[in-house]
Write a protein that binds this DNA or RNA. Structure first.
Lengths: 253, 253
DNA sequence: AAGTGGTCTAGACCACGTC
DNA sequence: ACGTGGTCTAGACCACTTG
């Protein structure tokens, strides 16, 4: 018998279903060697939705780099589609990110302890005095190569105590959703870099991701009413994980 | 007499004007210590536009991290607003980026030469045999500290020959717009990191941005019909320039 | 019950590209 | 002239919060 826990999840919009349909449709077009999509009005009729809904789904696909829209000509599959797999703006769970990249992904828990929050953590998470923080360090592997180091700082109230190693292999996102019914729906990321010295400072001296330079994400995760829930620090070995981003520029005078 | 060159520029949408108005309005609210915006319907009436147009402008501000919207409660100014200045998805010109960050920005041309394209450049830019590439290296300073190294590879056809140092201090974006009437409206960015060795490889051995690790953007710029126009490589010293990003996550089962 | 943001529709008109 | 994507409007209905 599996242990079922009831926990909230976000509702899907019509345009999300449309986006999925279009995604599948694009795959099938590619198999036939076709690169042009039907006009928006036609797509709207085929899927029995309004043109606005189609356009919302297409905009999502455009921002993810999947399609290109050319005014007056049509909508086309991005010929660089393969580069769009690791979109930096997607915010996918790390295991899924690594899988998307074509690797076999796995995770190992490095460390798990309870501590007093630092003053910085206390103010970022708006914590009261005497509250406790759970720290979880994990390494993510791509085909057995360590590529990401993740350190999460989570207020104790959002997470079970004495979690098993098996449970800790779930994402923190999942843990707090199952344990406290809290959904993080937004994050703010600071992007910087680190040298081997500053990586080692987070892993008791051993440079576990085995690179002399790393991409660093400092993340604060928020729930739907903008309450800061937990903090993440992610180190990426960019010899294996390089992100992509599509930008549509404002080019005014 | 100034030398006026006619060159195309993008048209502004109504929602862009609305966004600017809202931006100014937000500044004035902040001066009064207020953090809540009026309801969307009210904003729409005040600015004499439809609610849809207001919502588009608000969505832009939300993606830039300027505001927060909470279902059922209202629209609020993001208390972390100051962190939103260097949004990685904005694609602003580097001088403007550095100024936004609160520094005095300047630029120096390091190198300027003509060469045969490498096979990689040739395929990325879809160049013919025997075409030529102009390479421009520039360093950008924040308060006299070198913080960005930029290397552009531009097909000769898009840019004037024998440009003066003064002209080269303009962005490549400007140069090709003025010279060839070409507008880049989209780019694709690969994000990685570099150690001091790989930075020095691009500056004849001297590590000009003076950091043992850098954030690297490899960029291909496209025009409105998806033709690749030119290539950029940007090295950021993240001791001075750290980017921010706001992500609104899809949290489905 | 009232207020506010979120999603969706139907339709109009415009701008750009092709023939 | 026609087809296509881009912007905007007006209005409906839903979901969430507050009183």
């Amino acid at each position: 018998m599996e242990d079922i826990t009831l926990a909230p999840f976000a509702k899907k919009k019509l345009s999300d279903f449309v986006e999925e349909s279009l995604n599948d449709y694009i795959d099938s077009l590619l198999k036939d060697g076709r690169t042009k999509l039907p006009p928006e009005i036609e797509l709207a009729q085929d899927l029995s939705v309004s043109r606005t809904t189609i356009r919302r789904a297409l905009s999502n696909l455009e921002n993810r780099g999947v399609i290109l829209r050319i005014h007056g000509k049509g909508t086309f599959i991005n010929p660089n589609l393969s580069q769009a797999k690791l979109n930096i703006t997607s915010g996918l769970p790390l295991l899924q990110l690594i899988e998307n990249c074509g690797f076999k992904a796995s995770v190992k828990v490095l460390d798990y302890d309870t501590a007093q929050p630092s003053p910085l953590q206390q103010s970022a998470l708006k914590l009261k005095e005497n509250s406790q923080i759970i720290n979880i360090s994990r390494v993510y592997y791509a085909d057995k190569i360590p590529v990401v180091l993740l350190i999460d700082n989570i207020p104790a109230k959002y997470i079970g105590k004495n979690l098993s190693e098996k449970e800790l292999e779930n994402s923190t996102f999942e843990l707090i959703r199952k344990h406290a019914g809290v959904l993080c729906i937004r994050d703010e990321v600071h992007i910087s870099t680190a040298n081997s010295g500053s990586i080692a400072a987070y892993t008791m001296g051993s440079n576990i991701i085995n690179s002399d330079t790393a991409l660093v994400f400092d993340i604060i995760n928020y729930n739907e009413v903008n309450l800061p829930i937990f903090i993440s620090k992610q180190f990426f070995n960019t010899n294996y994980i390089t992100f992509n981003m599509v930008r549509i520029l404002d080019v005014y005078e």
